[in-house]
Design a protein around this nucleic acid. Structure first.
Lengths: 224, 224
DNA sequence: CGCGGTTTTGAGCTCAGTCAACGTACGTGG
DNA sequence: CCACGTACGTTGACTGAGCTCAAAACCGCG
């Protein structure tokens, strides 16, 4: 697996594949996780890192009073836990949003590969960096956008991770979206309704949506 | 500088010193930055990484409409830009909050050291991981705490980075604190007043404060 | 002493949270 | 097949924390 510097190092997708390679070697285990199940609980000892093969998980933080903040949703190909490799305990919980197939790789194995294989190491660093970037984007959105725009931004971001422009299934419930966006379940629901009534999204039932392309802005708005 | 695996790898402070070592070698440049000056602007090409020697900087993101979100404040010993090493352009601006002395190291030099020196590499990974952790904490606080508690949490966190328990100078203005906490300048100010009136902090002028130790909770509260 | 920038305080308003009722979908068991 | 229960989503009414706008106070400095 140690490919000794023969890989391209400037294509992000390729670099990330370096990290993913750990999950196809020996030592990796495939798990089936039922929807709602807790894969790892906040505070638990860090033993493994996970790659999502099918389904969606949420990473979340629970405060003392029980309130929950969702930090990120991770779908197919995402790798969860790189940021925890040097920590004794998980700072987040990882929970299945839908039924999932995930591959786990022991922490020690991943660390060893990072030491010895430049390809894996670059992948790990890139994964960390893009996690930081996502965190920044999340923070900005939370601080600046009003509720309806926040929900739309969430849907747009989700749509960008999926190909095609038909209706997409939203895998997570309204409460999850709320905990991710810093809104109540009710406000998320109202935002969906408002977006639909404004013709900015289409809905099929509660869990399928499609973005409506924004109309070209009026001439007077173009200057901005 | 390449100390070949003789360093302890489990003491976080020591590991971070590995990354810091890059700034004491040849190729590093010391800069004096006046308060308010922009060290790097969002969108600018990534050329260097910086270590703060004296003073405080803020890292911030500007939205299209000009609103600003402060992502972090960095003080002495902090290293800024590790998360940008694989990026073409800065995702954040770095601006001096106070007069600063910073050391800059060229991106290429840092990357080379990460490749060849395990000590530096571990330092870089740890720096990235703690940045993620801080981001999570920031996010949680923003979503859950009311304004007054948010400001207190900010002051507590700041106090923890500084030794002693006397009055501390707050280097940043109310607006900066607001943009960091997701609050308006006025609300920050009101929170300061509320905390002072509740006897939870002491103030000397607008920019020196001291935390008042919280009184032991009443017996009836202990169970929680 | 006056001036500019920052902070504080005040008054009014608004967006989103809470509480509560109702609707809908789905699965279970009689 | 239908009655029931549960979980999730929607909608409504009310409330309040924090924003905006505006004015006053404070501070450092020439």
């Amino acid at each position: 697996m140690n490919c000794e510097e023969q890989r391209p190092r400037n294509d992000p997708a390729e670099v990330l594949r370096g990290l993913a390679s750990v999950f196809s070697g020996p030592g990796a285990t495939v798990l089936n996780v039922a929807s709602g199940r807790v894969l790892v609980a906040q505070g638990q000892e860090v033993q493994s890192v996970y790659r999502i093969d099918r389904g969606y998980v949420r990473t979340c933080v629970y405060a003392q009073d029980g309130t929950r903040r969702i930090v990120s949703f991770c779908g197919p190909e995402a790798i969860v836990g790189v940021g925890q490799l040097n920590r004794p305990q998980w700072t987040v919980s990882v929970e299945a949003v839908t039924q999932c197939v995930v591959t786990s790789a022991p922490k020690a194995l991943v660390n060893r590969n990072i030491e010895t294989d430049a390809w894996v190491r670059d992948g790990a660093m890139l994964a960390l960096q893009s996690e930081i970037e996502q965190g920044e984007a999340h923070l900005v959105m939370m601080g600046i956008l009003p509720s309806t725009e926040r929900v739309l931004a969430f849907l747009s971001a989700f749509a960008q991770t999926r190909s095609g422009n038909g209706f997409l299934v939203i895998p997570m419930c309204r409460r999850d979206i709320g905990d991710y966006l810093g809104l109540s379940m009710e406000t998320v629901s109202r935002s969906f309704t408002a977006l639909r009534e404004a013709g900015r999204i289409e809905l099929r039932g509660a869990e399928k949506f499609r973005l409506v392309d924004a109309p070209a802005p009026a001439v007077s708005d173009r200057a901005a």
